[in-house]
Structures are given as C-alpha cells and as structure tokens.
C-alpha cells in the first residue's frame, strides 16, 4: 500500500514574494524618490549638460568647455569669488560667536525669559529676506536723514554712503548679517546646552574647577557637534548669499558686492546665458563641497554623534 504523500505547496514566484515582503515599503518611498528624481536629479543632470552648451530654448549648441574657459578668464567671476570668500570669512565665524554668546546668556535666564528671547531672536528667521532687505535699505539711506547716518550724526560723524561706495558696500552687507539671523543657531545651542549633564558641572565644582575651566573642558567640547553643524551650514548659506545683494546693491558699486550667486543670476536672467550660469553653478557647488569636506576633516576628529 502506497502512502499518500501531501502535495508540496508551490513556491510563489520570486517577484510575488518580493512584493509581499517589501511592496508597501517601496510604495511609500516611491513618492519621495519621484520628487527627488523630478525636482533634484533631473534639473541637476540637465544643468550639467547645459553647462557644455550655448543654451537656446529652441536649439542649444554643443560648445564643449567654452563656458568654463570663459568663466575662468573672466575678471568679474574672480571678483565675485573674492567677494564671496570675504563675505563668508567675515560673517560665519563672527556670527557663530555672536550666536553662542547670546545663547549662553539666554541659557542662564529663567524659563519664561528664555522663551521670550528665543521667540524675539527667531523672528528675523521667519521674516522674508526681501522684507528685511527693504528695511535695511532704508537704514542705509545715504543722506544725512538716513537712520544709521542720523545715529552717526549724534557723534559728529559725517554721513556715510553705505551702499554707494566700494569700500563700504560689502561691509554694509556684512554688518547686516551680524545684526540678524541668529535665531535658529540660538535654538540649536540652547538645546545642546540643555543636553549637557549637570553631573559633569557638579563634579567639576567638587574639583574646584574655575568657571573658565568648566567652559573650556565641559561646555565647549560638548557643544562642538552643534558648532560644526552651524559652521558647515553657515558656510553653505554664505556662499549662496543672494537676496540682500539683489535687493540692495545689485552687485554694485563697481562689482564690490557681486557674489557668485548673484553672478549666476545675472548670467541667466539678465544675459539669458543659461549655459554659462550652469557652469558657474557647478563651480559654486564644487567650492561648497570642497570647503565642507575640509571642515569635516579638520573639525570633526573629536566630535561624537
């Protein structure tokens, strides 16, 4: 007598097993992937191709490295790089110091005052860059009735043509950056300061460590990841400075405030030279990547996440 054996259950095809196990997961990530493909990857690839073309909406012409060659031989491009680097060096470190000092003092305050100052200092981050630039434009009014010039007049100082002369125009934009946009940095620093265990300070107190020693040995090292984050994002933002230049100086006078981002805008929307603008954009991207890598290399060795 032959025993009836149970028919083995057929194995579902591989793709069915895959869909059963991972189908929903892939469906959920499809939306962001599509958004990334359409709004990031496709424009980036198109811009890269465009950087080798004399762009025309009807028929672009392949011109090899001509856009890059022209760009590197152009005095205005190098001036814009110089202005951007000066702007970055003059704003990022000092803004981090200002942000840190403000956060340090706010951290000592009672909770309700902390909330008040956090909200107040965050307000400029919410306001549009255009609005802020228009307010500053009025403050930099070059006549003696201008806000800043009236203030200087109280001390007997002659009116300054803030945005109208090469020696003060870029400085004016730098000054504008010092006096605003610390809000998000302060929030990050306050959160990081709140995360430092109190026991470390108690132990330091027991060892009679001075306030300065506590700062240099406990506070600062433990805030390093936040500082590094602010440094990297600050450099990236500074390299892309545009709105204040566009609204207030349009790169002038005499290219004193022409930054690389403004130059890209000008190439594209003033001269309709989208090929050159794309080439300039890729050089800007390369600068930002190199600087970011260097920052991580030199400043992140003892940072723990």
């Amino acid at each position: 007598m032959q025993l009836a054996t149970a028919k083995p259950k057929p194995t579902p095809p591989a793709y069915r097993r895959f869909l059963r196990d991972y189908g929903w997961a892939y469906l959920f990530i499809l939306a962001p992937v599509l958004l990334f493909l359409v709004f990031t990857l496709y424009p980036v690839i198109s811009a890269f191709i465009m950087s080798f073309q004399k762009y025309n909406i009807m028929k672009s012409k392949w011109i090899g490295f001509d856009n890059y060659t022209y760009m590197f031989q152009d005095d205005i491009f190098w001036k814009s790089i110089k202005n951007t680097v000066i702007f970055t060096l003059a704003t990022v470190p000092i803004n981090i110091i200002i942000t840190f000092i403000l956060a340090f003092f706010i951290f000592q305050m009672k909770s309700r005052w902390q909330t008040f100052f956090k909200a107040t200092l965050y307000l400029p981050s919410v306001a549009s860059g255009v609005t802020i630039s228009l307010v500053w434009l009025a403050m930099f009014d070059p006549t003696s009735s201008g806000l800043l010039n009236t203030f200087l007049g109280w001390f007997g100082i002659d009116p300054v043509i803030w945005l109208g002369q090469s020696k003060t125009a870029l400085f004016s934009l730098i000054l504008m950056s010092y006096l605003g946009s610390h809000g998000s940095g302060i929030i990050l620093y306050l959160a990081a300061m709140g995360g430092i265990p109190k026991s470390l300070y108690e132990a330091a107190d027991i060892d009679h460590a001075s306030g300065w020693t506590q700062f240099t040995k406990i506070t600062w090292p433990l805030l390093k990841p936040t500082t590094l984050y602010l440094l990297v994002t600050g450099v990236i933002t500074s390299f892309q400075v545009f709105i204040s230049v566009y609204m207030m100086t349009q790169g002038g006078p005499n290219f004193a405030t022409t930054t690389i981002a403004y130059l890209i805008y000008e190439s594209a929307f003033v001269f309709y030279d989208f090929g050159l603008a794309s080439a300039q954009s890729f050089v800007l991207a390369a600068f930002i990547i190199i600087v970011s890598v260097v920052q991580f290399k030199f400043f992140s060795s003892d940072v723990e996440y």
């Binding site: 205005i76 109208g164 090469s166 002038g252 005499n254 003033v270 001269f271």
Partner: peptide
C-alpha cells in the same frame, strides 16, 4: 545688441557708479 547689453551692464554701469562715488 547682446554684446552691447554686456558692455552696459559689466562696464558702463560699474564705472558710472565709480565716477559718481568719486572712486574713479
């Protein structure tokens, strides 16, 4: 005309501003 626009924007304008500001 495109070259003229470039001259106006990249040469005439900055130099005109420099002249008004007394820098040139």
């Amino acid at each position: 005309a495109a070259q003229l626009k470039q001259f106006k924007d990249q040469v005439e304008k900055p130099n005109f501003q420099a002249l008004l500001a007394g820098e040139k």
